[in-house]
Design a binder for these strands. Structure first.
Lengths: 114, 114
DNA sequence: GGGTTAAATAACCTATCGGTTAAATTAGAA
DNA sequence: TTCTAATTTAACCGATAGGTTATTTAACCC
């Protein structure tokens, strides 16, 4: 069994996967079953089960029970904690936008990547 | 070489490590060298170099040059993008807090009736 | 009970992560 | 040039991540 990381690390790690972010986006529209969540992805059922487990351990979702279905529901507290952490840096990017030199350099570097 | 993930995934993955978040917190106070960043951690130099590389590939920092030193500097744009993503869910947890607020208010009013 | 459907578990595979030590690089100082 | 300091690169290691297929469990329906 893996050692439990701190909650914030677990949250950011859970968000670091586009499939999981898509699942959260879907759940923001309302709770739904694992099968329904799996449908849009070219991915096996067990893979989705694993993603849901990661999200659950990060506190980002909770699971319910409705006959054979195990609906997943968005739990926003962990998102809130992640947002709070980032918020501490907001001051930083708001005050640094007048750094034209860094801006142009970044644009140039991004251009080279493609 | 690893396949480049999408930028948002790279950012969240970079934030999913307490050492790297501590590095960013230090850099929010001002740019500094790799050695200075390594000092508070019980960790070898190469390990810090790797963390800095992860942060750099995520666009969260940039590196400079000052003699033998390679000062790292916080780059806030990627943090901004991550914050924007989370912001889309703000409505969700704020609604929940509104619900809680209304619930407490209702409890209070019901209490007054008795 | 027997069949069907939804989901989870088990076992496995490959790639990436986070660390190590040892060697190479880069730049200044004597 | 030679020495020294800061950092990176190379090579390696064990653990974790993200996927697969096959099997099992859970709950409903007849």
């Amino acid at each position: 069994m893996s050692l439990a990381p701190d909650p914030l690390s677990a949250t950011f790690a859970a968000l670091a996967d586009p499939t999981r972010r898509a699942i959260l986006a879907r759940l923001a529209l309302g709770e739904t079953s694992a099968g329904e969540l799996a449908r849009p992805f070219a991915m096996s059922g067990p893979a989705v089960t694993k993603h849901l487990k990661v999200l659950e351990r990060a506190g980002l979702i909770s699971r319910g029970r409705n006959a054979q279905l195990r609906p997943a529901k968005l739990e926003a507290a962990a998102l809130h904690a992640a947002s709070d952490w980032l918020h501490a840096y907001r001051r930083f990017w708001e005050t640094k936008f007048d750094d034209l030199d860094a801006y142009l350099k970044r644009l140039d570097e991004e251009g080279e990547q493609q």
